[in-house]
């Protein structure tokens, strides 16, 4: 079927993890597809990334031009269209990231490509590639089939693959930029760093995390009582910070902080993959949720499947008693 293209994602001088994750996944696929693993690197001043990617791919297509000093969907799209036309890969993988979702759907429309987003796995069934994705926040899986001719396009979820390697000696092939000058309906202006709050939850040893299940701001008192009893800092899911129950710098997940405490008590958090990515590195995870199917239980060490409003007061009371 052909080569597997993987778009290298980088920002502010950092090669993003999803790149090597996709290349690891692609290495297993390329063989079955009868092609090579090809990293596509678009940027400026990123020669070191090209070098690094050779350890994980058969070939690095490197478009090195000052036009690409920062990510811009318009420019990336133009380059990818030309590269895909020229090299005709079997499969194109782009990260299901803030960059990938800003780019891939437009590319799919422009080139009329078979397209599936947020893919968590790629299975071979009767010799055919089936992308697997999820619905209802991970409660249902779906297998898709591609119809029509390759190239197929997917966005691939972060943190679903353990990176292996470096174990290859790929070659860097420099490609002249198909784009010669700026095109300008969209201009990059700047990056604005995240706000810094009073507590840095990435350094916390014990975290009490609150989610949508707490329902109302007034119920935060239950969380505060528990946190106080065990000297924990409070953090939360996106739902909790969106609702204004917590400041934004307390959000755990891909768009917030990645935390690694000794103990993480998740209360009323269902566990969207974006949240899990930010906390699954915690040493011990306690989850309290009344929904037995909540994905948070897939990463928990202790599961309390019950109404948090019935469990919490007693939990706090007993902890106070035991700790004197």
């Amino acid at each position: 079927m052909g080569d597997v293209f993987v778009l290298a994602e980088h920002r502010q001088g950092v090669l993003r993890d999803v790149t090597l994750e996709m290349l690891t996944k692609a290495s297993g696929l390329a063989e079955k597809l009868g092609g090579e693993t090809v990293a596509v690197l678009i940027g400026s001043g990123v020669d070191s990334f090209a070098e690094k990617l050779t350890g994980y791919s058969d070939k690095v297509l490197f478009v090195d031009n000052p036009l690409f000093s920062d990510y811009n969907s318009e420019k990336y799209q133009k380059v990818l269209v030309e590269l895909i036309k020229q090299y005709n890969p079997g499969l194109v993988m782009i990260g299901h990231t803030t960059q990938g979702v800003d780019l891939a759907p437009a590319l799919a429309v422009e080139m009329n490509l078979p397209f599936v987003t947020d893919v968590i796995d790629l299975e071979f069934v009767e010799g055919k590639l089936q992308p697997v994705r999820q619905y209802y926040q991970g409660k249902v899986n779906a297998n898709f089939v591609f119809k029509g001719e390759p190239p197929y396009l997917i966005t691939f979820r972060e943190a679903t693959v353990e990176v292996t390697g470096p174990s290859r000696q790929g070659k860097v092939e420099k490609v002249e930029s198909p784009l010669k000058e700026d095109i300008g309906y969209r201009k990059f202006i700047e990056y604005v760093e995240a706000e810094v709050g009073d507590v840095d939850i990435t350094q916390s040893e014990i975290l009490v995390a609150v989610g949508r299940g707490i329902k109302e701001e007034k119920n935060m008192a239950l969380i505060e009582d528990l946190a106080k009893a065990i000297k924990a800092d409070i953090c939360g899911s996106r739902a909790a910070t969106d609702a204004g129950w917590l400041p934004h710098d307390r959000q755990v997940g891909t768009s917030g902080k990645t935390v690694k405490p000794k103990l993480y008590i998740a209360i009323g958090i269902s566990g969207a993959f974006q949240h899990l990515a930010g906390m699954k590195g915690a040493k011990t995870i306690v989850a309290i949720n009344k929904d037995p199917d909540a994905p948070i239980f897939s990463v928990a060490d202790f599961a309390i499947i019950d109404d948090l409003f019935k469990v919490l007061p007693k939990l706090t009371e007993k902890l106070k008693e035991l700790r004197g």
Binding site: N141, A142, F144, V145, F146, K147, F297, F302, I304
Partner: peptide, 19 residues
Amino acid sequence: LVELQKLYIPEVVSRAEVI
């Protein structure tokens, strides 16, 4: 250009101790 083949409930691999 894509077709949904099947839906299924994923097997949740949980190592959690259920209280």
